[in-house]
Write a protein that binds this DNA or RNA. Structure first.
Lengths: 242, 242
DNA sequence: AAAAATCTTGACTGCTTGGTCAAATTCAAA
DNA sequence: TTTGAATTTGACCAAGCAGTCAAGATTTTT
């Protein structure tokens, strides 16, 4: 598609292709045929990084449709034309940013250790996830937007790699339950609950702040959230008799 | 239907205005100076309803920016021009749809009964919310999108009425805890958890379906979700000794 | 049935925005 | 320093889209 268009139009000896792995988008990166054998120059590195960062900001708040490459370029400190020199299209910028973020975002989930203590592993996972939501809400918002659009870009990824990963972890949880170390609960829905709850603080930060007011900016807030969420997930709201 | 009322109507020379009070948007409603003293004609009623329904569909999947009034009009079975005869602008359509939905969506929350059995009240609330998410995911997606954009339209509503409502219910939950009928948990975060979890099944249905596959369309699915969510929220995942 | 009011639409306008092009300007290797 | 490659940008184009306008069609009122 993109590649074809370019092949057809004249191959400017000044464009270099980078293969986007997960989402199957082949996209330009800046400079081909540079004698530097595929390696990106200092300027390319800097500019691509600047664009990615700016794009994450803009896409996460404005959504794919709402974002404009003009605004991304401005935020990255360059002209739109120059941005388009590094990324062949808006969609490529978007795909790249999602790619760069998804691995990082999923890492703590992968890190759940089948041999660890179940309660401790889940506690750790929730804590990390909450921290990530607080520190980089843009990442969460970016995904949320993509999924809510029907995941036109990530659809296949969700159905293959993500599903496989969740299946794997669900099996782990199931074995924990079998060992009597967790109360019997559908592992998939438990995962969804954890995702929903932790990401809520990123995706709906506007609402959380509207309701809790300035408290969300006080130092202990994150800990308070962690404690509350963990308390419910681990112990439930039904009083335990002691 | 009391409490927050919308839809007062007043007139101007050539267009009939409808005042959308909560969101402070004054918007046109169609029809020139009809003598019919504020009452909407049969055609007005039908068309406004058709537009609202179509708009909910389109806005919820495409977001505000992504939606076009052309597509809304097409879906409502009329020309864009005609749609604009009933609603003065895209934003008015949007505001109207949000208004029409928010009350309905919030009703079960309002219905939480301070004098009821705490566990039972919360169980009921979660069940209803899950059912709503399954039956009308568009409503949830519409809000999600609005909040994630930074709530340009609903911001004030969130900070005033919604906050007041949540404050009120948080007080109820606190009193339940004081009575020893619930485990001690921050009421606000409990509410957020319930919102996040239940709405997740609407907002992220694409992801849920990608991971669970065809199971989501099987008859018992909704009950399964309800059971899993309730089990965690009520009892937690830490095994209870019997 | 005629008039008045209401409803509907095609044609058009102006603006935004993704993307192209060719002409610079800067950078880096020799 | 020279020279070719890499980088940058202003001018431009076409598509998409919100919103206007005036004229025609339909419904309601008298």
């Amino acid at each position: 598609m993109k590649g074809m268009t370019f092949g057809q139009v004249r191959f400017t000896p000044s464009k270099l292709y980078t293969v986007a792995n997960i989402f199957g988008v082949t996209h330009l990166a800046g400079a081909t045929q540079n004698k530097n054998d595929g390696k990106l120059s200092r300027i390319q590195l800097e500019n691509r990084a600047a664009i990615s960062e700016a794009a994450l900001d803009v896409f996460s708040t404005d959504g794919y449709r709402g974002a404009t490459i003009d605004r991304i370029a401005e935020r990255a400190g360059m002209s739109k034309t120059n941005l388009l020199y590094y990324f062949g299209s808006k969609e490529e910028v978007y795909a790249t940013v999602i790619e760069q973020t998804v691995e990082e975002w999923l890492q703590p989930f992968k890190d759940i250790d089948p041999d660890g203590d179940p309660i401790e592993e889940i506690r750790k996972y929730i804590s990390i996830k909450l921290k990530m939501s607080a520190q980089k809400p843009e990442a969460s918002k970016l995904f949320a937007n993509e999924i809510q659009r029907g995941a036109p870009l990530m659809g296949k990824f969700l159905r293959t790699r993500l599903k496989a990963l969740v299946d794997e972890k669900a099996e782990v949880i199931r074995s924990w339950i079998d060992d009597g170390k967790l109360a019997p609960v559908d592992p998939y829905h438990l995962v969804f609950m954890i995702w929903a709850t932790t990401q809520h603080y990123a995706d709906f930060d506007t609402q959380v702040e509207a309701i809790l007011g300035s408290a969300v900016r006080k130092p202990g807030f994150q800990e308070q959230v962690g404690q509350a969420v963990l308390s419910v997930v681990l112990n439930g709201i039904r009083p335990r008799d002691e």
